[in-house]
């Protein structure tokens, strides 16, 4: 079984980003890491290949510079290889363009299944997995929390507001997974060493048969017209718990008629 996993390399969310005032895109000149949301997809792919008794896990990623640190993390977890589409022309690409690019690479790889995180931690549009499926013309199941593959189809538990649905879906297909559905493994020392010799193929927009005006800001159909500070919420009273703080809470709840 061959599983392609879409991974994104993002600035560390613990160190919130900034917008480049010139390009109005996220500054990515800091060290990038594997989006934690994607580690669940990588883990699920590794488990599915294991259950299938063999196969491979290939990573697909895109970045405007040749950043690889996040890919190294996923390779160290056990993925077999990676393809990175890297091109300065990609800056400003919208979710649809991103999906078109990733779908090109995935099409060349012909996997049985594509897994992506439900949404990235930085841009969080949440549409890319389903758009990839649309570009490929494949069925898809978003918000998957458990997947069981049997032959040429799979059974997916898909999260709903009320609980979950069981969904039957033919392969090849795309699924998106939310955080917490599996326990991502930590890369072992052996894994980290092995990752260094795993193949990472870098491709440009031209390598994919696309032109620079189809991607980036030029191809995106939307532009950022302004960036403003959001209204700030004022903090109120802050007290140290002296053992009686719960009474303060009760007073507060009474004052707003919550009790």
């Amino acid at each position: 079984m061959k599983v392609a996993v879409c991974v994104k390399q993002i600035p560390d969310p613990a160190d919130p980003g900034a917008l480049d005032p010139e390009t109005r895109t996220l500054k990515r000149d800091v060290k990038l890491i594997l989006d934690e949301s994607d580690s669940y997809g990588v883990e699920m792919a590794l488990q599915l290949v294991d259950t299938a008794g063999g196969g491979e896990v290939v990573l697909v990623s895109m970045a405007p510079n040749s950043e690889r640190s996040g890919l190294s993390t996923a390779l160290a977890m056990g993925a077999d290889s990676a393809t990175l589409v890297s091109d300065p022309a990609l800056v400003g690409s919208d979710a649809l363009t991103t999906a078109k690019i990733l779908a090109k690479v995935i099409g060349e790889q012909s996997p049985d299944l594509v897994i992506a995180g439900s949404e990235s931690s930085d841009g969080y549009t949440g549409t890319v997995p389903e758009q990839i499926a649309g570009v490929l013309g494949w069925p898809s199941v978003t918000a998957a929390k458990a997947v069981e593959v049997s032959g040429s189809s799979m059974n997916v538990q898909r999260q709903t507001d009320a609980g979950y649905d069981e969904v039957e879906c033919p392969l090849p297909a795309v699924i998106s997974v939310t955080a917490g559905v599996v326990e991502p493994r930590y890369p072992s020392f052996k894994g980290i060493m092995a990752a260094k010799s795993k193949p990472v193929e870098e491709k440009t927009v031209a390598d994919l048969g696309m032109s620079a005006d189809q991607v980036g800001w030029a191809g995106s159909g939307q532009e950022v017209v302004s960036v403003v500070d959001a209204p700030v919420r004022e903090a109120g009273e802050k007290i140290e718990d002296d053992g009686e703080a719960h009474l303060k809470i009760i007073d507060f709840l009474e004052s707003v008629k919550a009790i």
Partner: peptide
């Protein structure tokens, strides 16, 4: 922005080759 809303928006954007503004 719901499970189904996102799915439809994403598929529609591909079908119409039109961008989505999210969030």
């Amino acid at each position: 922005t719901s499970y189904d809303g996102r799915d439809i928006a994403a598929r529609l954007s591909v079908a119409l080759d039109a961008t989505v503004i999210s969030n």
